[in-house]
Protein backbone atom coordinates (compact mmCIF):
# COMPACT_ATOMS: atom_id res chain seq x y z
CA UNK A 1 0.00 0.00 0.00
CA UNK A 2 1.30 3.47 -0.81
CA UNK A 3 0.72 6.49 1.38
CA UNK A 4 0.57 10.26 1.19
CA UNK A 5 2.17 12.77 3.59
CA UNK A 6 0.87 16.28 4.20
CA UNK A 7 2.13 19.09 6.43
CA UNK A 8 -0.09 21.83 7.81
CA UNK A 9 2.16 24.84 7.21
CA UNK A 10 0.15 27.00 9.61
CA UNK A 11 1.07 24.60 12.40
CA UNK A 12 4.66 23.91 11.27
CA UNK A 13 7.19 25.70 13.50
CA UNK A 14 10.35 24.52 11.75
CA UNK A 15 11.37 22.17 14.57
CA UNK A 16 13.11 20.01 11.93
CA UNK A 17 12.25 16.82 13.78
CA UNK A 18 10.69 15.52 10.54
CA UNK A 19 13.98 16.07 8.75
CA UNK A 20 15.72 14.14 11.51
CA UNK A 21 13.21 11.27 11.62
CA UNK A 22 12.51 11.00 7.88
CA UNK A 23 15.26 12.56 5.78
CA UNK A 24 13.91 10.86 2.65
CA UNK A 25 10.52 12.57 3.03
CA UNK A 26 11.26 16.08 4.27
CA UNK A 27 13.43 19.11 3.80
CA UNK A 28 13.21 22.61 5.25
CA UNK A 29 12.66 25.73 3.15
CA UNK A 30 15.55 28.13 3.78
CA UNK A 31 13.37 31.21 3.37
CA UNK A 32 10.29 30.23 5.38
CA UNK A 33 12.01 27.77 7.78
CA UNK A 34 9.06 25.44 7.26
CA UNK A 35 8.90 21.82 6.12
CA UNK A 36 8.80 20.78 2.47
CA UNK A 37 7.68 17.30 1.38
CA UNK A 38 10.02 15.52 -0.99
CA UNK A 39 9.16 13.06 -3.75
CA UNK A 40 5.61 13.97 -4.74
CA UNK A 41 2.18 12.85 -3.56
CA UNK A 42 2.70 9.12 -3.34
CA UNK A 43 5.30 7.33 -1.23
CA UNK A 44 6.39 3.73 -1.19
CA UNK A 45 5.61 1.50 1.80
CA UNK A 46 9.37 1.15 2.44
CA UNK A 47 9.28 4.67 3.92
CA UNK A 48 6.30 3.98 6.21
CA UNK A 49 8.33 3.63 9.43
CA UNK A 50 10.12 6.91 8.78
CA UNK A 51 6.79 8.60 8.04
CA UNK A 52 5.17 7.29 11.25
CA UNK A 53 8.19 8.40 13.29
CA UNK A 54 7.92 11.89 11.81
CA UNK A 55 4.25 12.11 12.86
CA UNK A 56 5.09 11.10 16.44
CA UNK A 57 8.18 13.30 16.57
CA UNK A 58 6.49 16.52 15.41
CA UNK A 59 5.90 18.73 18.46
CA UNK A 60 3.51 20.89 16.42
CA UNK A 61 1.46 17.85 15.35
CA UNK A 62 1.54 19.24 11.82
CA UNK A 63 2.12 16.00 9.88
CA UNK A 64 -0.58 13.65 8.60
CA UNK A 65 0.03 10.28 6.90
CA UNK A 66 -2.87 8.85 4.86
CA UNK A 67 -3.17 5.46 3.16
CA UNK A 68 -3.73 5.56 -0.58
Amino acid sequence: MAFKVTVDLDLCQGYANCLIEAPALFDIDDDTNKAIILGGDEHDEALRNQADASVRGCPARAIVVEDL
Partner: peptide
Amino acid sequence: IGSPRQLAKYKV
Protein backbone atom coordinates in the same frame (compact mmCIF):
# COMPACT_ATOMS: atom_id res chain seq x y z
CA ILE B 1 18.95 29.67 15.75
CA GLY B 2 17.27 30.33 12.41
CA SER B 3 19.09 27.35 10.83
CA PRO B 4 16.98 24.17 11.05
CA ARG B 5 18.90 22.40 8.28
CA GLN B 6 22.13 22.70 10.21
CA LEU B 7 20.37 21.16 13.17
CA ALA B 8 19.44 17.98 11.31
CA LYS B 9 22.99 17.70 9.99
CA TYR B 10 24.53 18.09 13.45
CA LYS B 11 22.14 15.63 15.04
CA VAL B 12 23.51 12.93 12.72
